[in-house]
Nucleic acid binder design. Structure first.
Lengths: 106, 106
DNA sequence: TATCTATTTGGCAATTTTGCCAAAAAGGAA
DNA sequence: TTCCTTTTTGGCAAAATTGCCAAATAGATA
C-alpha cells in the first residue's frame, strides 16, 4: 500500500499553489499570448503595482515565469508552457459540473 | 487589450486551489490507481479522519472526485481524470528548475 | 431496539495568504 | 550628479486555509 511522501507532495503542491489564484491565472493566460512588463499587467488587472509584482514573484519562484530587464521595465514571459494544460482541464471540469447541474434540473 | 474577468478566473482558481495541497495531491494520485474509502486514505495519510474527510469534501466540491456509499464505507473515485495532466506538468517544471540549478553550479 | 462502525460537521486556534501603503532599489535621462 | 520612472521590499491588518477535538449523523448489525 502506498505511503504519503510528504516532501514529494509538498514540492508538487508549491508549484500548483502558485497557479491557484485568480490574478496569477490571468497573468499566465496573458503571458501565454505575449510577454508583458509589470506596468502593463498592473494596468490590465487594476490592482496596486506592488501586489502585481508580488504575484509575479510567486510565479517566478515556482519556475513558471521568467523575467528580463529592458530599460526601465521588467518583462515577464512564460518559462514552462505546459501549465497551459491546466486551463483545458479546468474547462473540462467546469463543463462536467455544469452538465451534472443540468441533469439535476430534469 | 485583455481585461481581467474576475468571475471567470475566480471559478478557475477554485478548481486549481482544490488541487493545491500536498494531502489532496496524494489523494488524487491514489484515486487515479484505485478507488478508496475514507478509512483507507486516512490510514495512508496518517492524519485525523475528520481532516481527510474535509480534504475529500474540497475535492468533491470542485468536481474532481465523486463518492458512493457501500455498507458503512464511503468510496471516493476520480471524476475528471484530466487532472492527472497536472502531475506531468509539475514534474516538467521541477526538472526544468533542477537543470537551471545545475547550470548555476558550473 | 440498542449498539457499533464509518463518516461528516461544528468550532476553534494556529498558520498562511493576500493586498495595500510607504519606503527602498535600480537604472535611465537630463 | 540629480531627478524620473519602474519595480521590489518591508510591514501590517484582514481574510482564508488548515488540522485537531468533540459531537452529530447515517447505516449496518446484533
Amino acid at each position: 500500500m502506498s505511503k504519503f511522501d510528504k516532501v514529494k507532495y509538498d514540492e508538487m503542491a508549491k508549484i500548483i499553489k502558485s497557479m491557484a489564484h485568480p490574478t496569477r491565472l490571468f497573468i499566465v493566460d496573458e503571458l501565454s499570448k505575449q510577454d508583458h512588463c509589470v506596468c502593463e499587467l498592473t494596468e490590465m488587472i487594476g490592482a496596486d503595482t506592488s501586489t502585481v509584482s508580488k504575484h509575479l514573484a510567486v510565479l517566478k519562484n515556482s519556475g513558471i515565469v521568467q523575467d528580463r530587464k529592458e530599460g526601465n521595465n521588467v518583462y515577464y514571459s512564460l518559462r514552462c508552457s505546459c501549465v497551459l494544460s491546466f486551463y483545458q482541464c479546468v474547462r473540462d471540469v467546469i463543463s462536467h459540473n455544469v452538465e451534472d447541474q443540468l441533469k439535476l434540473l430534469k
